[in-house]
Computed example of a mutant assay.
Amino acid sequence: MPASLLHLEDRLTCLSLIPAVGGSIANWSSKQTGQPLLRPSDQQALNSGSPRRLACYPLAPWSNRIAEGGFECPDGWLALSPNTDHDAYPIHGSAWQQAWHVAEHSSSHAHLTLNSNQPFAYRAEQHIELRDGRLSIRMRVTHLDAHPAWHGIGLHPYLPRTPQTQLCAAAQTVWKASDDKLPNTQCAIPPDWNFSQLKPLPDELVDHAFGGWDGTCLITQADAGYQLACQVSGADYFLLYCPVGSDFFCFEPVSHPINAHHLPGKPGLRLLQQGQSTELEFSLHYQPLTQAEGGD
């Protein structure tokens, strides 16, 4: 039986959640035009039981890939196995592969929780709210295990892509990856990937982490008549994934670069003791372009 949907709305937009499938967002759209603001999930996607077919899912207690079969913690080695059938590395943590609980729900707000024992004990929470066209997600992870461990956090939104889609997200560096999709060099951003000014997405494959981000982003969808103004705190990096020939792209606010557990200084990770927490806040503000151009 397909998992149940939870619905939120404000005066401008409507959103559906699917808590049992990784605490994911299924759809977010404009009420007036019906335009999808995140990649839309049709019935087949909803029935798939996979967050990777949906609109957005949470990343905890790490983002992206971890190499070497695990990572070192103060009390010893934490072994990890691949958690999908499409990747050689454990990817995106464990929160997205578990059912979340609905702690609170109103017409415009939902509080989702997850108590996990994989790969160690932690509690994850999402406060998801709609207000005047702004989707806000506050995500908090609390370490519950008696042994300290390294934590990372993030969100994985999928966004519609057309030839007119443009992105502005100023960063300072990019982590270049080798053929195994793991970063090994931090370097200056090449011109085609420099989004300090609004510009179209590149035609070639991009699947990289960008650092030195100021936490703001603008995504314009001129042919659909709107833009999304993004704001984040608790994440100094974003992952940009642009698959060639696809009708979507991913812009992922994350606290750390790919494979940070094995990079010098473990950039962006936090070593949490029992009871300590880490938090990320992310908002996407829907603005019709006529309204945005008028300065509202």
Rank of each mutant, 00 (worst) to 15 (best):
H147M: 11
Q166Y: 13
D192V: 12
V141A: 03
W193F: 12
A169H: 10
D132R: 15
N184V: 01
H151S: 05
R134H: 11
L130R: 14
E129R: 14
P183V: 05
A121V: 08
T142V: 03
I153T: 10
K181G: 02
Q172A: 13
I153P: 10
S196A: 15
H147P: 00
P119F: 06
R123W: 03
A149F: 13
Q164G: 03
H127W: 11
H143Y: 06
A171D: 11
A121E: 05
E125W: 06
A170T: 14
S178E: 11
H151N: 10
W193Q: 14
T185S: 01
P163T: 11
A170V: 09
L159I: 03
S178F: 07
A149S: 14
G152E: 09
P148R: 07
R134E: 15
L159R: 01
L135K: 10
H156W: 08
M139V: 06
D145R: 01
L144W: 00
Y158E: 00
D192P: 06
D192G: 04
R161P: 02
A124V: 01
M139C: 05
P190E: 05
G133H: 07
D145E: 07
P190V: 04
Q186I: 02
R161Q: 15
Q164S: 11
I128A: 00
A170G: 09
A170P: 02
S196L: 03
Q166M: 15
H147I: 12
V174R: 00
D145F: 04
C187W: 03
R161W: 10
R161H: 14
W175K: 05
D192M: 09
H151G: 06
P163M: 08
A169Q: 04
W175P: 08
V174M: 01
A171I: 09
R138W: 07
D145M: 03
A169T: 10
Q164F: 01
H127F: 03
P160H: 04
P119N: 05
H151V: 09
A188I: 01
W150H: 14
Q166L: 15
Q197F: 06
H143R: 09
P190S: 07
R131C: 12
H147D: 11
P191V: 02
H143D: 06
P160S: 06
A171M: 10
L159G: 02
Q197A: 14
Q197W: 05
W150S: 09
M139S: 10
L155T: 04
K181A: 15
F195V: 04
K181N: 13
A124P: 04
Q172D: 12
H143C: 10
H127I: 05
T185V: 09
L182K: 00
I189L: 10
C187Y: 00
H127C: 06
D179L: 08
P163D: 11
F195T: 03
V141M: 07
P157S: 13
Q172S: 13
R140D: 04
